[in-house]
Design a binder for these strands. Structure first.
Length: 267
DNA sequence: ATGACGGATCTAATCCGA
């Protein structure tokens, strides 16, 4: 049976609920993982999702900033959040569901951006980011018939072809060697497969984020691949398609991130 | 090197994003 999951940093779910509805209507993922919902749990537009058949949701939000939510057509169970770096902010939610007789644990992450300077002494935000990544090394491995999917805005573009200029971004937070090597470690030591790069070769340049500050984001095309979908290696053979919805960056009042979508054929 | 834009918030000016 087909199973489709999408991740999207929406940059305010209340402001962009219309875009979310359009996306769900046109693409019909089974599960949508949102980051930067920028609202408290009771402000989350649950009715809009229910109306479109997304009756199951796990929301972990706070006032004004951050916040993650996972919405689903299928029942969600065992929802929990881990308070990374004990900051009391809302950057992770984990849910479990069944599809095609498989149990899937879905980790939805919003990794800290890390501020301007790649220096843990001068810049506490960078220190926070590295501590957050350090705790991500402890993510659960496969156990007792549960397969894992990790999605979200990881705020790191790990590969040379995940940024518009490898050279120019080597000192820019999101693409510094300390970050990209850290992300590689989390992926490799955690036994994760980068599902997006399973389908799209590292020879190909791909982005999921373009700054609001460019005059013409499309023409300048100075993007970065900050949004990721990882999975247990056992899911590799079931992965049928990956898409990055570049066109969504051109929608009216867009998020600066676009949806990244993985499709599976689960037995 | 800087600043460009755009969000939320005790709606004005400030903090934040990456």
């Amino acid at each position: 049976m087909p199973f489709k999951i999408a991740t999207w940093n929406i940059n305010s779910v209340r402001l962009r609920i219309g875009l979310v509805e359009r996306f769900l209507d046109e693409h019909q993922p089974d599960v949508l993982c949102l980051q930067e919902i920028k609202c408290q749990n009771d402000q989350f537009p649950a009715k809009n999702f229910k109306k479109l058949g997304y009756e199951h949701m796990a929301v972990h939000g706070q006032k004004g900033y951050h916040g993650v939510a996972t919405v689903s057509k299928r029942p969600l169970s065992e929802s929990y959040s881990k308070d990374y770096v004990a900051m009391g902010d809302t950057r992770h939610i984990s849910t479990q569901l069944e599809a095609g007789g498989r149990k899937l644990q879905i980790h939805n992450f919003y990794v800290p951006a890390g501020g301007d300077e790649a220096d843990i002494v001068k810049n506490p935000k960078f220190d926070h980011k590295l501590k957050f990544l350090n705790e991500m090394l402890e993510l659960p491995h496969d156990h007792s018939g549960v397969e894992n999917i990790l999605v979200g805005d990881l705020n790191i573009a790990p590969h040379e072809n995940d940024v518009w200029s490898h050279k120019k971004l080597l000192k820019v937070v999101s693409h510094t060697p300390i970050e990209t090597e850290f992300l590689d470690r989390i992926r490799d030591e955690g036994g994760w497969s980068d599902l997006v790069r399973q389908k799209i070769s590292t020879d190909e340049i791909i982005y999921s984020w373009w700054s609001y500050r460019a005059k013409d984001w499309d023409a300048a095309d100075k993007g970065r691949r900050l949004d990721h979908i990882w999975g247990s290696p056992s899911l590799n053979e079931n992965l049928t398609n990956i898409s990055i919805l570049r066109e969504a960056r051109g929608w009216e009042k867009p998020s600066d991130h676009v949806p990244v979508i993985a499709e599976f054929d689960l037995d």
